Simulated scan of single mutants.
Amino acid sequence: MANREQIKGHWNEIAGRLKEHWGQLTDDDLQRVQGSADQLVGMVQQKTGAARNEIEDFIDSVFRGGIGERAADSVQQYGEAAQQLASEASDYARDQARKFAAQSADYSARVVDTVRARPTESLAIVFGLGIAAGALLFLGRKR
C-alpha cells in the first residue's frame, strides 16, 4: 500500500482517480482524510462498501500504472522531440556548410579568373592594400 508521503505528494491525482472509480465519493469526503492512507481506505470502504484490499490495490495501481506510465511517456516524448530537433539542427548545419563551401569555391574561382585576366591591376590593388595596412600599423604604434 502507498505510504503517507506518496499519497500527500500525489493527492490531486489520487482523489480524482478515486472519484472516477467510485462516483459516490465527494470532494468533502476526500478532503476530510487528505494525507492519511488508513483514513482514506476506511472512508472509501464506508462510503462504497468495497473491500479494503480492493481499495488498497486500486490506490497502488494509481502509483504503478498512472504515475509511472505517464512519466515514462513524458520521458519518451521529450526524448523523441529532442532527437527530432537534433536531427533538424544537424541537417541545417550540413546545408549551411555545403552552401558556404560552394560560395567559397565560387569566390576563389572568381579571384583566380580576375588575377589571370588582369594581373597588372591585381598586383597594383594588392600593393595598395599592403601600403594601407602598413600605414595603419605604423600610425597605431605611434599612438
Results as ranks from 00 to 15, higher is better:
V33M: 05
S74Q: 14
G68F: 12
A93W: 10
A135Y: 14
D28T: 13
D73G: 05
E56T: 08
G140N: 14
R110V: 01
F138K: 14
D91C: 03
R4Y: 03
E5H: 00
G42D: 15
Q103N: 08
G66W: 07
G140M: 06
G128C: 03
T26G: 14
G65H: 11
S74A: 09
S90D: 05
A89Q: 11
L136P: 01
S74I: 13
S108F: 08
E80Q: 08
D60L: 02
G42P: 03
G68K: 15
T48P: 07
S61M: 05
N3D: 07
F100P: 03
G68T: 11
E20P: 06
A51D: 15
A51K: 15
H10S: 05
D27P: 04
R141C: 09
L18F: 02
R143Q: 15
N12F: 06
V111R: 12
E80T: 00
E56W: 00
F127Q: 03
G128T: 02
V112W: 01
Q96V: 09
V126K: 07
E13K: 07
Q39F: 03
R94F: 00
D29K: 11
A133S: 06
G35W: 06
A37K: 07
E20H: 13
Q83Y: 07
A50F: 09
A86S: 15
T48Y: 08
I55K: 05
R143C: 15
V126P: 00
D106Q: 12
W11D: 05
R94L: 02
H10C: 13
E69T: 01
R94N: 02
P119K: 02
T114K: 10
W22M: 04
V115D: 07
R141M: 11
S104Q: 07
F100L: 12
R141F: 01
A89M: 11
E69R: 08
H10R: 10
R70D: 05
V41A: 10
Q34E: 12
E88H: 06
V33A: 00
G130W: 10
V44W: 02
G68R: 06
A102S: 11
R94E: 04
Q96C: 08
V44I: 09
G65D: 15
L85W: 14
R64C: 00
A89D: 08
V126G: 00
E121L: 03
H21C: 11
E20L: 09
G128F: 03
Q103H: 05
G66F: 09
L30W: 12
I125R: 01
D73W: 10
A117D: 14
